[in-house]
Design a protein around this nucleic acid. Structure first.
Lengths: 138, 138
DNA sequence: GGCTCGAATTGGACAAGGTCCAGAATGGGA
DNA sequence: TCCCATTCTGGACCTTGTCCAATTCGAGCC
């Protein structure tokens, strides 16, 4: 994750304690926290960090392309630090847990011109839904 | 849409003026209204209908599988009455307009076992993003 | 190390979308 | 027609997210 901090410094980001903490919280694979979860974990490391700062920082990370916004559940947006390897998501319908997945094939190629209605299509987002092993066992 | 009403009656739904109005508002193809839009249109037909009732009714329709919840934008859920023909969505990144699309191929088949992490996968949701002709012209 | 200043942070108010609940109204079977 | 379980209502309340004026602070420069 420190390479993230490096990249950000390279882009002229002023390095503050708050931003460092948010970046740390987001480290790892299969991490998909809501903004409030990020805030809760950030507060554990830096008690006086405010909600607004967390939202601002997440928004900036998204703008810079370092983090993806994912809306797999209908409630809060989730933030996915794994922005540099394209992937899709597999979501448990029961407990909401999320895994990154890499399907074969290219769904963009599966949308014929006749189904594009004149749109310039640039991106696809695929969400698989199912039941995770834990919830299936219960 | 009256076949919808028939089906609902068959399932033991008590047929009230409010539910009839919500069902009417949802009729049609490429209809993707937010709950508040549904409420606004319902009020036009039945002024005293309450927001809670619209939310309840939409929730019941979703549970019964008559209507799909779509979360293409990060703000409000949208409701898609076209639940009986599987389809995906094409969303304009600029104005948010939505079209139903029918890609070729089956994304479910594109997720190898090794990428399923033990999940029982039952469903896929594909959202294409792009720019619609109107917004491209502007 | 200190100064300086523009960028970053703060916290609290506000907005939108959605849920919940107790009490009132009503569809439809007997 | 009567009755009551189901449905509706209106408003309080919750969660997620945005905004803003005032304050603080990082880091380049001396």
């Amino acid at each position: 994750m420190s390479d993230l901090l490096e990249r950000l410094r390279g882009r002229g980001w002023r390095m503050t304690a708050q931003r460092r903490v948010v970046a740390e919280v987001l480290a790892g694979d299969h991490v998909h926290l809501t903004a409030d979860e990020v805030h809760a974990r950030a507060v554990a490391k830096l008690p006086e960090i405010s909600r607004a700062t967390v939202y601002n920082t997440l928004g900036e990370l998204v703008t810079l392309g370092e983090v993806l916004e994912v809306s797999t559940d209908k409630r809060a947006k989730r933030y996915d630090p794994n922005a540099h390897r394209p992937h899709h998501h597999l979501v448990c319908a029961t407990c909401g847990s999320i895994r990154d997945v890499h399907p074969t094939g290219n769904p963009l190629a599966d949308l014929p011109d006749s189904e594009r209605f004149g749109f310039t299509v640039s991106d696809v987002e695929v969400t698989y839904r199912g039941i995770c092993p834990n919830c299936a066992a219960a």
